[in-house]
Design a protein around this nucleic acid. Structure first.
Lengths: 209, 209
DNA sequence: CGGTCCCTCCATCAAACGGTTGAGACCAGA
DNA sequence: TCTGGTCTCAACCGTTTGATGGAGGGACCG
């Protein structure tokens, strides 16, 4: 029997391409398309697709990870398959943690996407082999958990602000910023602000990747 | 008469989508597809398309900008239209400087792509209005030109290296690094390494965007 | 050949930064 | 109630950084 799929991507061209691929096959049925995460949740609620095929970067305020969380909270919950161009470890881990049933890069051949759809519909997880090994190694060293305040400081840090400037921006003393920085450095296992900026970007702890 | 187009994108799904869009129209004819820059140049040499529709990020060693330069060197030279997801100023400026006839974001409606194809085929430049204003403002403040050595130093800088570490890595004295940094700071108009990292990323002076 | 970059290096010095220790206040959960 | 985590602040000290001003050699070019 055919797997029912909801396409979610803010690029009309990509949706058209996916629909063209699936329409040519018997074993996959596209039941709808959405351009944003909000739209995707609304449609999934009514269409009950087996799988939602979702991009990570979406137009609206809701990104792919947030959309995944919302979709998995539905009853019955569709499987969510992430299809995107970004292969940063942080993105992949974030998606898996959010409950995604798989992570695909857009440069894979169409047959692989179909294969992943069936795997996801069967309740299993599909990960490309090279990604899988990276995820496993990433699991061993879990992403550092920064507090909201520390993320505030980090946000200014990556923009090149000095301690004094961060202090002014957050309405606290420079001593407080230093204290936060000590914790940040410890959690990120670095010993300088410059390196903190680097690993923060690598770990995907900040927006605008 | 129909515009002949060569599609260049490393994502099969996107190529399929574009082909589906164009095949449904009378005024655009797809004459070929390529997944890499090298392939694109080879095909363009034989197929003589009016326009090459090209992604910025390509699989092979040649990116969209390099491919644009190579394509524009052909005789007769096809118009090159960049279609991508990245809207960083540095990418857009780089493409225009390389001789692209336009820059489109993948979230535009298909009709806009067709419109841009006709504009490019007619020898004119097509830029989305919001991008156009940014390009103009960017032209006023041209991208800073760093020497190769300065880029070496910057490369280590953005990875969080200290002056001492950069000196060791480049087999020179710390004093030399400081000297380079003074020049880098001057050119980037900053006064701290952290801010230099930030504006270097913004300006697209370093790899791995 | 002289000029202009570029790369290299030196010395000095104030300011900023990183690391440390210690501590009080608040709040949520055991 | 006490504990743990978070956020806040302070004082101290050694190191790094950035600014300043110079200098020599090599490469390229008109």
């Amino acid at each position: 029997m055919a797997v029912t799929v909801l396409l979610v991507d803010d690029h009309p061209v990509v949706r058209t391409g996916l629909r063209a691929v699936f329409d040519a096959r018997e074993d996959v049925t596209v039941v709808g398309e959405a351009a944003t995460g909000e739209e995707a949740v609304l449609l999934a609620e009514h269409l009950h697709p087996d799988v939602v095929l979702c991009d990570l970067r979406l137009g609206g305020g809701m990104d792919g990870v947030a959309a995944t969380v919302a979709l998995r909270a539905l009853r019955p919950a569709p499987a969510v398959l992430i299809l995107t161009t970004f292969d940063r470890d942080a993105d992949i881990l974030g998606a898996i943690e959010a409950g995604a049933a798989g992570y695909l890069l857009k440069d894979v051949p169409p047959d692989t996407i179909v294969e992943a759809l069936h795997t996801a519909a069967a309740g299993q997880v599909f990960l490309a082999s090279d990604l899988a090994t990276r995820v496993m190694s990433g699991m061993r060293q879990p992403r550092p958990r920064l507090t909201t305040r520390e993320l505030d400081v980090l946000g200014h840090l990556v923009q090149g602000a000095s301690n004094k400037e961060i202090a002014r921006a957050l309405f606290v003393t420079e001593a407080t910023i230093k204290s936060h920085l000590v914790h940040i450095f410890t959690k990120l296992d670095v010993d300088s602000r410059a390196r903190a900026i680097h690993v923060a970007r690598e770990a995907g702890l900040i927006r605008e990747g």
